[in-house]
Design a protein around this nucleic acid. Structure first.
Length: 496
RNA sequence: GGUCCUUUAGCCGAGUGGUUAGGCAAAGCUCUGCAAAAGCUUCUACACCAGUUCGAAUCUGGUAGGGACCUCCA
């Protein structure tokens, strides 16, 4: 079975065929770096990280471009809650690029904490003003741009005469125009649906560049068109982003690309869905907006404690990227337990000492082969991570049964055991990018100390001194270390 | 108001017209000095109304909830 993806452009699942064999061009709309990213954004970036990882897992060489939007949106009234009275002081003391730098660093820290792989190219809008101006000039040449008083607009109506504005979002321009109201400041556009390619800078706009039309800044749809074309070509494979960007942002991108080079950019458009908390959209006005790192440190009134980044990722992965996801404390707690179960299975699998069957393939081997194949089939079906995880839980049951003796060692061959281990490892770590957080904390010195305590408890148990043995177990439990008695009289420990 | 999406057990969530999703919670059993963990078993649902069909969670129509987008800006 080959990879199928849901293409927003065709509104159906399509077989994925890369334009250049074994290579994929992937563009994802990145963050605007004038505030902390939202947890909803985090879900989007984690989803595309999984997609990037899976494509790589399949053997594709992926060029993964994710932009940093750092231009055109900063005025001295923005950011840091600085009011008008202080704006002049801010102008002197705080460069817009300082805000950009601050939140770019913060964004990278978060992406790193959540174990996402950096894109192969991370271009900035301010670094591509020249390319954006060139694209506007091409649009002028092709008759889709017009200038009014230092600003340049895209002529949607004219474009729509030759092409289809609305091809992605399913809107038609007559309805759009009928639905728009006339607002102040819109009269310089020929039609209300036209969008800005270049905006004349007002005096309070700090970031501005010279252009053939005077000082200004690029329209916010333009950077993605310019940079995707520059690094991935006029046609490339996948363009991704959040559902909320479908219109107008992505629609405008297609119009800009088609208007300048007759190609619409991406072949497949993938959109991730929104994230709610306690059934509500997260927003500052509702007071339920939680930052990514607040989930990790638990420093928020709506959270009971901090959750490891992998827990939040695991919760994301248990639903489909294109479904709405509602998260709450119980969901986080459930995900924490489920993830722990899988990670323990990985640890157990790697430490299994079995005298396996050496006379050929067993029934269990075949079952493992089927589960491994099912994992790939699920991922191939538009990245169905939820169903893949279901299969991984089946593998964890096999691991536990091998350890517990419910399945005998001779029921599995070395090949089957290797496949069992490698399947768990590949999907959990390579494709999903999860981490065994407990494994990071534990180290040899701690384990040595634990072996001392385990020795004491074994002695106590041998003397039937259960008061002492329970004391050791209970007091360790209170510090977050769980002792487990194994069948053979041995003891193991985990962080709970 | 317009365009589109969505409604699945106690909770979260996958689901290709006929076959157990999975996790968490709960109950019973096995194991255990007692626990924990693990294994086995049980709880088997598809908003509502109609239609198509031998058969519908899945397809069609309607009703009712929920959501996203719909000037600029993100």
């Amino acid at each position: 079975m080959s990879l199928k993806v849901y293409n927003t452009l065709s509104r159906q699942k399509e077989e994925f065929k890369s334009i250049i064999p074994n290579h994929v061009g992937l563009y994802v709309c990145g963050p605007t770096v004038y505030s902390e990213p939202h947890v909803g954004n985090l879900r989007t970036f984690c989803s595309f990280d999984m997609i990037y990882r899976y494509l790589t897992f399949l053997g594709y060489k992926v060029r993964y471009v994710r932009n940093i939007t750092d231009a055109g949106h900063l005025t001295n009234e923005r950011g840091e809650g600085v009011n008008r009275m202080e704006s002049q002081a801010m102008l002197e003391s705080l460069e817009p690029m300082e805000i950009v730098q601050k939140y770019t660093v913060s964004f990278h820290r978060i992406m790193d904490a959540f174990n996402t792989i950096p894109p192969t190219i991370e271009p900035t809008a301010t670094g591509h003003i020249v390319e954006q101006i060139e694209m506007i000039e091409t649009l002028f040449k092709n008759g889709f741009a017009y200038e009014v008083d230092g600003s340049v607009y895209f002529d949607v109506k004219k474009y729509n005469d030759q092409h289809n504005y609305g091809v992605l979002s399913g809107r038609n321009i007559d309805e759009l125009m009928a639905g728009y109201r006339d607002l102040d400041g819109q009269e310089e556009k020929r039609n209300s649906i036209d969008f800005a390619l270049w905006k004349k800078a007002s005096p309070e706009h700090i970031m501005q560049w010279n252009s053939p039309w005077g000082k200004g800044f690029p329209g916010w749809h333009l950077e993605c068109s310019a940079m995707s074309t520059k690094y991935l070509g006029e046609t490339f494979d996948i363009h991704g982003g959040g559902m909320d960007l479908k219109f107008p942002h992505h629609e405008c991108e297609i119009a800009q690309n088609t208007g300048s080079c007759k190609h619409g950019g991406a072949k497949y458009w993938l959109h991730t869905n929104m994230l709610n908390f306690n059934g509500q959209k997260m927003s500052k006005s509702l007071g339920n907006s939680i930052l990514p790192m607040e989930f990790v440190n638990g420093n928020h009134p709506l959270l009971d404690k901090g959750y490891a980044p992998s827990v939040l990722k695991f919760l994301f992965l248990q639903s489909h990227y294109s479904s709405e996801l509602d998260i709450n404390i119980k969901g986080l707690q459930d995900a924490e337990k489920g993830l722990k179960r899988l990670m323990e299975a990985v640890d157990i699998a790697s430490s299994l000492q079995l005298t396996v069957n050496s006379s050929g393939k067993t029934e269990l081997d075949i079952k493992i082969e089927n589960i491994a194949a099912a994992c790939k089939e699920c991922m191939d079906d538009d990245f169905n991570t939820a169903k893949t995880i279901g299969n991984l839980f089946e593998l964890s049951s096999i691991v536990n049964s091998l350890k517990g003796g419910q399945i005998k060692p001779e029921e599995i061959s070395a090949v089957g055991l290797d496949l069992l281990k490698s399947t768990l490892h590949s999907y959990l770590f390579d494709v999903f990018g999860l981490k065994n957080e407990n494994a990071i904390i534990s180290n040899n010195k701690l384990d040595n100390a634990m072996q001392v305590l385990i020795g004491l408890r074994k002695d106590a148990k041998a003397k039937k001194d259960f008061v002492t043995s329970d004391k050791i177990r209970n007091e360790l439990s209170a510090t977050g270390i769980q002792l487990k008695d194994e069948k053979d009289g041995e003891m193991s420990w985990t962080l709970s």
